[in-house]
């Protein structure tokens, strides 16, 4: 199936966004994301990845351009609670900072928040909470307060809060940032499993090592352009060292060679050959 004939979930045409009308975060983004896709948005700090996810989730209206989600124009979603709820029934968002996502006194309350806002019956809410907690393997943390959790536990609980609504699309903003390797591996496995469950998963990251496990398609954002500068499958993108250097995803003296981490033990300023 080509991109042209896939059923689109999100379609962005010339979307730009600037904070306070002065600080550009995205510039003229054209993008289509299809049903069932596992997309990784790869980019350095400040390239607009988080802003893009918030636009996809209807939390920010574009400063210019047009965005459609499930065929509906999202430009006025902020003024239409019914449309907002309709969108969020189908799209789950996991924020980069889990402390923002976990705002209730206990993990259980946090996971139940979404299903309750959907107006579901209490038995249904209870069932969905239990299922989300089980999927993320945090059942034993249900009665804990968020400040009693470690970073990895918070992240898993945060994903459970989004999963409890059973959304068709999951937007994950740097889900493995600041986590230790073991926790990161567990999360990568969980994200891959969500993809296998048929959900569309859009993940932003700048950690190259997790990309092959979770990406069907990789879109690289330029940190100066603030728009996609390349896209392709994980192998093609990760093998393009020039592209990764240009997008500020690797440094000339600290980067991957093929799939192996490689660090030069020197720091001279001149260029040299990378055999």
């Amino acid at each position: 199936m080509t991109r042209r004939d896939c059923p689109p979930i999100f379609r962005l045409e010339g979307v730009s966004y600037s904070y306070l009308g002065r600080y550009p975060a995205l510039q003229d983004v054209n993008l289509t994301i299809c049903q069932g896709e596992k997309v990784v948005i790869l980019g350095a700090n400040g390239c607009g990845k988080s802003t893009l996810l918030k636009i996809l989730d209807g939390l920010y209206p574009p400063s210019a351009g047009r965005i459609e989600a499930f065929g509906e124009d999202l430009s006025r979603v902020g003024d239409d609670p019914a449309q907002s709820q309709r969108l969020h029934r189908r799209v789950g968002f996991v924020f980069q900072d889990a402390d923002i996502q976990l705002f209730s006194p206990t993990v259980w309350d946090d996971v139940a928040f979404g299903p309750l806002q959907m107006g579901w019956e209490q038995d249904e809410v209870r069932r969905r909470v239990q299922e989300a907690l089980r999927l993320m393997d945090v059942e034993d943390l249900a009665d804990r307060a968020p400040y009693e959790l470690s970073g990895g536990e918070k992240k898993r609980a945060a994903i459970a809060t989004a999963l409890a609504i059973d959304p068709e699309v999951l937007l994950l903003d740097e889900p493995t940032a600041n986590l230790d390797p073991r926790t990161k591996a567990v999360l990568v496995e969980l994200i891959a499993r969500l993809g296998e469950m048929g959900k569309s998963v859009v993940t932003t990251t700048q950690e190259l090592e997790i990309v092959p496990s979770i990406a069907g398609r990789v879109i690289v954002f330029g940190d100066k352009e603030r728009r996609p500068i390349a896209e392709g499958d994980a192998d093609t993108i990760l093998d393009d060292t020039d592209l990764l250097v240009r997008a500020n995803l690797i440094h000339q003296h600290l980067h991957l060679h093929g799939r192996r981490a490689h660090s030069h033990q020197h720091s001279h300023a001149g260029d040299h050959d990378h055999h």
Partner: peptide, 21 residues
């Protein structure tokens, strides 16, 4: 933070009326 938390609530379906369990 309050702005971010409000967004987190919106993204989970909050539409202005709090429902509790």
């Amino acid at each position: 933070m309050s702005d971010d938390v409000y967004q987190a609530m919106l993204s989970r379906g909050f539409a202005g009326e709090i429902r509790t369990f």
